[in-house]
């Protein structure tokens, strides 16, 4: 098996723009699947709507391209029906945190064994560059021509607070870290959230004078540090990367299996 065997090659080249961070995440996700030897028949990918959600069309797993924001809700139905499936849910920042925000926090709360990969490019790409709940104040977008005044969610804090048992963050620049984190996230029994900061050179980079794809990669290299880095003392605005939460907690499908056991016995 190789990475090429895990994709639907006839749809390549993919539809993403040159230098889009989504491709880098797909690339490294596939390497994890390959290296860990997951049977593609045991994998299900469920996505919503947006640039990032198109990833489900490219992987040769069981795949479901659903509605905007609804991927986690659909995935919950699949997982509860076939608990042995590994269910991966790639989502954009708008998909996961705006229209799908309610599903996101409740999937965290249930601790159902899904792997949510939040591809955060801080913009709605597919619709042409509107601000998202992860854009933050000061960002320029087509719907924030005078700059955004909206505060942003912190995905890591939100997921941790809502009860996810695995929470991590990395960036498209840190490709080996993507692999090491995704490897753990997929193996983790419980709801895992991996936020990956990715560049959207077409809309975010250009509009916000951050440059092209290379400059965005450098931006994520230079504006992030591993959790607890000493550099934070000099610059507390640096974004921390790494695994923030990794705990064993009761998983939803396992708990429901116990309900079934009880219900059958008590009949």
């Amino acid at each position: 098996m190789s990475v090429q065997d895990l994709i639907r090659q006839r749809f390549f080249p993919h539809l993403w723009c040159p230098g889009c961070g989504h491709g880098i995440v797909l690339n490294n996700l596939l390497r994890v699947i390959d290296a860990e030897g997951y049977d593609p028949y045991s994998l299900c990918m469920v996505s919503g709507i947006g640039c990032s959600s198109r990833v489900s069309g490219y992987v040769n797993f069981h795949t479901m391209h659903t509605m905007h924001g609804r991927a986690l809700a659909c995935a919950t139905g699949i997982k509860l029906t076939k608990p042995h499936l590994k269910v991966l849910v790639p989502m954009g920042d708008g998909d996961a945190m705006a229209i799908g925000g309610n599903h996101f926090i409740h999937a965290c709360r249930r601790n159902i064994d899904l792997t949510a990969i939040v591809l955060n490019n801080r913009i709605y790409g597919m619709t042409g560059g509107q601000y998202s709940p992860l854009s933050g104040p000061g960002v320029l977008a087509t719907t924030a021509p005078y700059s955004s005044i909206d505060n942003m969610f912190d995905t890591v804090k939100l997921a941790s607070g809502a009860g996810a048992s695995f929470v991590a963050r990395t960036t498209a620049f840190h490709v080996r870290e993507i692999q090491s984190i995704l490897k753990k996230a997929i193996a983790h029994k419980g709801f895992s959230v991996v936020e990956i900061l990715v560049g959207c050179p077409t809309y975010f980079g250009r509009k916000n004078k951050l440059g092209g794809q290379v400059e965005l990669m450098e931006h994520y290299r230079d504006s992030t540090v591993p959790i607890g880095s000493k550099k934070l003392e000099e610059n507390p605005h640096l974004i921390q990367r790494g695994i923030f939460v990794e705990e064993e907690r009761a998983e939803y499908c396992a708990e429901y299996a116990r309900i079934i056991e009880r219900a059958v016995k008590e009949q």
């Binding site: 990475v3 090429q4 994709i7 390549f12 080249p13 993919h14 993403w16 040159p18 230098g19 889009c20 961070g21 989504h22 491709g23 880098i24 797909l26 690339n27 490294n28 596939l30 390497r31 490709v175 080996r176 692999q179 794809q213």
Partner: peptide, 13 residues
């Protein structure tokens, strides 16, 4: 092998 991992197009093998 870094280029292989960085390539957003899965073009490098």
């Amino acid at each position: 092998g870094m280029c292989e991992l960085y390539c957003p197009d899965l073009a490098i093998r």
